[in-house]
Design a protein around this nucleic acid. Structure first.
Length: 405
DNA sequence: TTTCCACAGGAATAAAGGGCGA
DNA sequence: TCGCCCTTTATTCCTGTGGAAA
């Protein structure tokens, strides 16, 4: 027998479980779809499209509904001879309006006429953007997914106003902004709020029943018959429901569980596979999170890890600072000021690596956060050691620690 | 009810770094 | 190469905040 042989085939169409799969039918979002349809109605009437703002936690179907409705809208628009173009931009890796504009231009331009991500004057970039948009003509809907990643909102202001400001003549542009962050709306300047948030749709979290329906629908397409028992569906649904009614998490888990089953040559996915999948997803989440940190982020995490091992957590930022400065000293790196160190702690909290609890001791001690690890420390250490720039640092710290013992 | 603690986190700004056109 | 432009990381300064204590 050769080195390679086909896996046991329990997957019919594995891609059905992927994030970018577009289901033919949306489950459990009837009410939201109705509201969404009426918000998009002006397009079919040939009017200027409304700007729509969608918010709701991760994995509650905002993107899926948008994709689904826009493809329906395109078909219907064609029927009524309406010239409709839709552009989707994920702002996940874009932090400024400048980058967003470049990304949009590149999406509209030929692949051999692309802009580099930096180096042009802002005004020039804007002019190019209006040129590209105006040359399309008709109705244009631009979807900004994860719009909260953009730190300045100037593009969200400029695009809806472009026609009024004389930058566009042939095209009617509408924006759909999608965000996980409820506070994002508040953080927008009032002029953007009034234009972008003409229509607001809120997507509530899925409950466990809706999650089960979604998982069942996808599992029936993704796997062969009788491969996924109801107990597995229920377990994956419970996992998503526990966190935030997150369908994406549940689907990822189901796919990973399927992969585990394939690896083990099983002909059914079992609850044990789900457990294994869960820890493997957790592991890669941590490893990726840690790998994305800067060296200073690693040092802060390392300091917190040491404190955790000593049983000193939960701990307030200023006490972390003391240890952090020692770590920096041993690693021969200049320590950051407390304000900046707190930013790194906040970033760790955002990644879910550490958790923090607000404390308030009033006049006696003021208001502050206490931080503690929210992750398996062994996993963290493993992730830290995997990270290139930490290799030398952890070794150096370890060596000096050994010496000082 | 007012005061006040001690940090949270926003804003302004600087410095370093990297890509661009000319 | 130079000057310009944007990004990232960091510093400094400052206002906001919630609840125990006065």
């Amino acid at each position: 027998m050769g080195l390679f042989q086909p896996d046991t085939d329990i997957f019919r169409h594995r891609d059905v479980l992927r994030e970018d799969y577009q289901p033919e039918e949306i489950v459990g979002r009837d009410e939201e779809l109705q509201q969404y349809i009426s918000a998009l109605q002006p397009v079919i009437n040939g009017d200027q499209p409304a700007n729509i703002f969608l918010y709701g936690k991760a994995g509650v179907g905002k993107t899926a509904c948008t994709r689904y409705l826009l493809s329906e809208l395109k078909e219907d628009a064609a029927e009524f001879n309406i010239d409709l173009t839709t552009i989707r931009t994920n702002c996940e890796d874009l932090s400024t309006s400048y980058q967003v504009a470049i990304q949009l231009i590149n999406e509209l331009r030929d692949p051999d006429d692309q802009l580099k991500p930096t180096g042009y004057p802002q005004r020039q970039v804007n002019e190019w953007l209006w040129e590209e948009l105006d040359s399309i003509g008709g109705t244009i809907i631009i979807v900004f997914d994860e719009v909260d990643h953009i730190n300045d909102d100037s593009i969200l202001y400029q695009i809806p106003r472009a026609r009024a400001n004389g930058n566009l003549e042939n095209s009617k542009v509408g924006i759909i902004g999608i965000s996980n962050d409820f506070k994002f709306r508040e953080s927008l300047s009032s002029k953007v709020q009034s234009s972008l948030c003409e229509k607001e749709l809120q997507f509530p979290a899925y409950n466990a029943n809706e999650l089960r329906d979604i998982l069942r629908q996808r599992a029936d397409l993704a796997f062969y018959d009788d491969v996924v028992p109801q107990g597995v569906i229920a377990k994956c649904a419970a996992f998503g429901a526990k966190d935030a009614g997150d369908a994406r998490q549940s689907l990822d888990l189901l796919m990973e569980a399927g992969d585990v089953a394939v690896e083990q040559n099983a002909d059914q996915v079992t609850v044990e596979h789900v457990d294994k999948a869960r820890s493997s997803l957790e592991r890669s989440r941590i490893v990726d999170g840690v790998a994305g940190l800067t060296q200073q982020g690693h040092l802060v995490l390392y300091a917190l890890l040491m404190l955790h091992e000593e049983g000193s957590t939960p701990i307030r930022a200023r006490d972390v600072q003391d240890r952090y400065e020692i770590v920096c000293d041993r690693a021969a790196v200049d320590p950051l000021v407390p304000r900046r160190m707190r930013d790194h702690l906040g970033e760790l909290a955002m990644l879910g690596i550490v958790s923090r609890t607000e404390r308030n001791k009033g006049e006696a001690g003021g208001r502050y956060y206490e931080y503690e690890l929210d992750t398996n420390p062994d996993l963290l250490l493993e992730a830290l050691e995997k990270t290139v720039d930490m290799v030398g640092v952890t070794d150096a710290i370890q060596k000096r620690l050994d010496q000082s013992v």
